[in-house]
Simulated scan of single mutants.
Amino acid sequence: MMNITECSAPVMLRRATAKDAQRLERFFRQFEEVSFCEWQDAKCLRGVLEQKTTTAFLALDVSGEVVGAVLGGMLGSRGTINHLAVSPFYRSQGVGQRLVEAASADMKRVGVLRMFLFVDDANLAGKRFWSAQGFCEPRGETTFERDL
């Protein structure tokens, strides 16, 4: 079981727990490109982080500050990355890639065979990042969604 991993940048990765809900909310809200919904508050995140189907990791600098995070979930043989962000200073140092690898390993361990995620059409840097991680745009599919 992956718990703590050394990154190429001076950060440590560790699994996020329900106790990290408020830190995770504050961190994700800093980034417009993350598309963090109004209703995704610490209480909501606490419930999500308590679920066995959730995968979540934090990247922490040497002082313990969150400099990156990933949050996703699993349903049967499919998994999703709902949110990933890395602080600007730590970008292009492998932190995002390590977070993706940690979430991917977590999902693979429980039988997930395919991962998906959504990237805003205008987020060109995000599209480049995800392409570099081996993700590709699906052909012939349209995503439908609604809030409950």
Rank of each mutant, 00 (worst) to 15 (best):
S63L: 14
V70C: 00
E33K: 04
Q133G: 02
V112K: 00
A42M: 14
H83F: 10
V112A: 00
F89I: 14
K43G: 14
F89R: 15
L49I: 06
G79M: 02
L99T: 00
K43Q: 14
N123E: 01
Q40H: 07
R26I: 15
G79T: 14
I81N: 01
A69V: 04
N123H: 06
G47S: 07
G96K: 04
S87I: 03
E33N: 09
A69P: 15
R29F: 15
S87R: 13
A56T: 06
L117P: 03
K108V: 05
M107D: 01
L71N: 04
M107R: 01
G134Y: 01
E50T: 07
T143H: 02
T17D: 09
A103S: 08
V119T: 08
N123Y: 07
E32S: 10
L45D: 02
F57K: 07
T53F: 03
A102G: 03
W39C: 13
L60R: 09
T54E: 03
P138I: 07
V67L: 12
E25H: 11
E141W: 01
K108R: 10
Q133H: 05
R46C: 06
A16T: 08
D121R: 07
L124T: 10
R26G: 14
A59D: 09
Q40V: 04
S104N: 02
V34M: 05
A105G: 09
A132S: 12
Q51D: 05
G72R: 01
G126E: 12
G79F: 00
G94N: 10
G96H: 13
D41P: 06
L49G: 03
G68D: 15
M115S: 01
R98V: 02
K43F: 11
R128N: 12
L99R: 02
K127L: 09
A132Y: 07
I81L: 13
R91T: 12
S77L: 13
R98L: 07
F57W: 10
D20E: 15
L84Y: 08
V48R: 03
V62T: 12
K19F: 09
V67H: 15
V95N: 15
E25S: 13
C37T: 07
L60Y: 10
F129N: 13
D20V: 14
F31I: 06
V62H: 09
L24M: 15
V62A: 10
A59C: 15
